[in-house]
Nucleic acid binder design. Structure first.
Lengths: 235, 235
DNA sequence: CTAATAGTGTCTATCAGACATTATACT
DNA sequence: AGTATAATGTCTGATAGACACTATTAG
């Protein structure tokens, strides 16, 4: 019980980012090689300490997004994922980390940021399979982020954030298949996505090998009614 | 950009609790009257600073649950809700608050805790209607907690946490009606809840005015397959 | 018997999943 | 014509919502 002399403990706060994209039909996360101790040389999620005592958490997340990944956050979906504050999770002392989830369309290799010795995309499957080890408790955070993304695909228009400005329905379908890890019947998918009010709106056509595909762009709805339900066996 | 002399800013961390229960068929939240500045005399969510630099966040949440609400957290559903860290949200300085959501079955008036000058249940409708004002950004946190509870009722067995050890299907239905703010057809509700694998299991009978009701207790499943979908017009 | 509450049955419009066919381009 | 990809139609079993009846107790 605090007495009159007691003052609250002070802790350090970091912002960590789970940045997901699609590359070659696989779900990838952006990882950086740590340039300083602790865990120097190991892979970790991009992130870092608050700049100063007055920086907003969301602002700090956008700043790290730009610094470590070279991504302009303005057009990016960015959402709070959770807090990770188990004592001992960071050898430097008591560090509470606020995790954010960011979604980006397919991108080339990132320009290595100023802080990070090296930043690169890694398939989340490789991390889940234990092929890539992460510093701190970042594997836990990454798994939470991936699961959140999978769940959000059902109820929100998040999938369009994985695509470019415009996209075909097939491309949108490949997003769902990659993130959920399942195969979807194209005919039923066409019917369902077009039945969701305000999800996607037509925007011209695209030349391709074969019959030209209709192009769409994201509609006005953030929430999907009805939702696109994830099959039972999804990853 | 941090130079070699730079050290991360230190912030204070609080844990705040959204504790929900059902009283007289209405969704209520536990609020305390603040005994100290700032916001002395106003209503707020129960919560407080970390005890020390080594206290786990979840442990701190359980501690506050016991201290300020007199509730033993062992049997209680407790879940992280989010982080609230906007600069200026607390006049004492930079305070980052980790919010937790707790669900309790119907309880009598709480014994006022040691920290809180007074703790009492308030219908969340009164807060939403502006009849009760909360300190800090606690109204935002409360709203997030209520919305989370509503969403979780669809996909998890959370509703049973609002009931006692055993309950009738009618009682369970009243939980859904109160939290969602809608009326549900009892016949369809019976069919649906009994069709969900592992949601509820029979456990004797209950004497009542009229035909005795079958009693149930919570089943083993945490997640509901299929989910109980919330009607469109739910609050 | 009557009142009160618990529990079950049925009908129908809609929807999800399986599956085959037609359409439009390029070579 | 042949190939490749896009788009649409149909059938069927399951489900959600509307609705009416039977069952079991107390007084």
């Amino acid at each position: 019980m605090p007495d009159e002399q007691w003052s609250p403990p002070l802790v350090m706060v970091t912002v960590d980012l789970v940045i997901l994209t699609l590359r070659a039909g696989e779900l990838n996360a952006l990882l950086v090689e740590r340039g300083v101790e602790p865990y120097q040389g190991e892979m970790a999620l991009p992130g870092g300490f608050l700049n100063n005592g007055e920086e907003d958490l969301q602002v700090a997340a956008h700043r790290e997004l730009a610094e470590e990944a070279g991504l302009d956050g303005a057009s990016l979906h960015l959402e709070q994922l959770g807090v990770y504050g188990t004592p001992g999770r960071d050898p430097r002392g008591r560090v509470v980390s606020v995790a954010y989830l960011a979604i980006a369309p397919g991108l080339p290799e990132p320009a290595a940021g100023t802080d990070a010795a090296g930043a690169r995309w890694q398939p989340v499957g490789a991390v889940a399979a234990g092929k890539v080890r992460l510093a701190f408790d970042h594997e836990l955070i990454l798994n939470d982020g991936v699961e959140r993304a999978r769940a959000k695909l059902e109820h929100t228009a998040l999938a369009t954030a994985f695509c470019g400005e415009t996209f075909t329905i097939s491309e949108l379908q490949r997003v769902y298949e990659a993130v959920w890890g399942v195969e979807i019947d194209p005919r039923n998918f066409y019917r369902k996505v077009q039945g969701v009010e305000g999800f996607i709106v037509p925007d011209g056509h695209k030349a391709t090998r074969g019959r030209p595909a209709r192009l769409f762009r994201a509609g006005r709805s953030a929430a999907l009614h009805p939702p696109l339900v994830r099959p039972e066996g999804a990853t």
